[in-house]
Design a protein around this nucleic acid. Structure first.
Lengths: 261, 261
DNA sequence: TCGAGTTGTGAAAAAGCTGTGAAAGCAGGG
DNA sequence: CCCTGCTTTCACAGCTTTTTCACAACTCGA
């Protein structure tokens, strides 16, 4: 299995130099990073589906402790790393006891911060292999990662592993256009050779299987010269009386979007 | 069940003062600590069922890196904390990348070391109080963990220990597809070597024994390229109903499972 | 409208996976 | 020390999936 799953990181810090450097490096590593100006409600964090959080309590103000405690309590899957200036042993111990995973002292090398974030989310992931994240619903489709399979109603699309991973990746970034290289990198796990058509071929297989079980819906859209975008929409064909099956998509906001404000 | 299960810690260090203080505190905290004079084979570590390891690579000699790598690779569930003297950022990053969970610099306060060890071995509190929930029933099968055995009616399947543990793991996650690596990790206790076929072989043995005492039921399903899924379903002896029509079990919502309660 | 560059398709070749039977290793009990 | 079960390893057959190819169909700018 792909061990290097992409990490979704949020940073709460106002040391712009540090944050910038960090952003550059995490991006190069293929992580998705979002910088926050300050504390945001735990609920929003949940929606962002983060793997890791790097935070300087100095910017949190007075009740940073209770905020951190709330975060750690409500997001047991989130790896939390504190990176701040001078601190006492007692403070660090208190933080770690409270649920924080690592505590780094500034100034620190961005590379080390990244390595520690990586270590922390590695451990978190291992501790809870596949949390009960309900199925991802899109159009008539239900994507269930506990089954490595997608369903229309009760019927399985009968996807192979790669097909499933591709579909999952696309659906995870619903609405976003993904370039072939990026898709290949994330599904296959290594760089795409020039001229490789694998992605196209698998897109076709997916479309075939989707069409067969869920005609009346268009799921995967081609962006010429760019890549593909997943966005379930009822096919506008006037002839289609079919799509009376409730588009459950809206009922289950399963996936928040990191890029969405 | 107690979420704070006692931690089994091993320490590889020769700073007797530090080790002694540490031992005193961990003992007070109810941990089981074992101090080792130097490197021991990863296999022995497996046997010790450790949760955490505190190690000063200085006492490991020259190939401390490869040793640590081996440990981290074979015992992914082990929390590894390095505690040593001066080090460069590059060394720390290398260590963390390699699988180490935390890296502390000496001199360090024992309390902080303990807090970090705790943070590192903190993991899901799985309230799996299999405290006599009675035998787990699936299809014609009754799995009785009190007997380390499965029965069809009164007849024992005559499972060996590994067979039983494998069956129990699968049945515990009924309906879920488990990957080989995950299965191996949880039944054998350490990471699966690439190309190891043990899981497949045991699946075959289970299938044989199940088939013999409970023909007419299919229990273990193969997911090509992924792993196996336990889901008892009556086998349609003659060419019967549609093959792909999902059995009722599949329709159940992903969350709560009434039969488990 | 033309042409270079892209994407969709079908099918064959190559690679990879799983089921199986059997032999080789191992550990505990006579 | 030998026996006896249990576990691991091996080699191979049969299948499934993935990759590769050659072409047709299509898009977009000149």
């Amino acid at each position: 299995m792909n061990s290097q799953q992409t990490i979704r990181l949020a940073v709460i810090d106002n040391d712009s130099g540090f944050v910038t450097v960090l952003a550059k490096r995490t991006e190069a590593a293929g992580w998705q990073q979002r910088t926050l100006g300050g504390a945001i409600p735990p609920e929003e964090m949940v929606a962002m589906k983060l793997n890791a959080l790097l935070v300087d309590p100095a910017v949190l103000g007075d009740d940073s402790w209770s905020y951190l405690e709330r975060i750690c309590g409500m997001l047991p899957d989130l790896g939390v790393v504190v990176c701040t200036g001078r601190s006492t042993v007692a403070q660090r111990v208190r933080g770690l006891r409270l649920g924080i995973d690592d505590w780094i002292t500034k100034p620190c090398h961005p590379e080390e911060a990244i390595a520690r974030l990586e270590a922390v989310s590695r451990r978190r992931r291992r501790a809870r292999p596949q949390a009960e994240t309900g199925p991802l619903v899109a159009g008539e489709l239900a994507i269930r990662s506990d089954r490595f399979q997608a369903f229309v109603g009760e019927v399985s699309l009968d996807l192979t592993r790669r097909e499933f991973e591709l579909l999952q990746l696309l659906a995870d970034s619903k609405g976003q256009v993904l370039e072939r290289e990026a898709i290949y990198q994330r599904v296959w796990g290594y760089a795409m050779a020039h001229g490789d058509r694998s992605v196209d071929v698998f897109i076709r297989k997916l479309r075939q299987k989707l069409e067969k079980l869920s005609p009346g819906w268009g799921y995967i859209h081609t962006h010429f010269g760019v890549g593909y975008r997943f966005d379930p929409e009822p096919v506008d064909g006037a002839a289609q009386a079919a799509p009376e099956a409730a588009p459950a998509a809206d009922l289950a906001p399963v996936h928040g979007d990191l890029t969405a404000a």
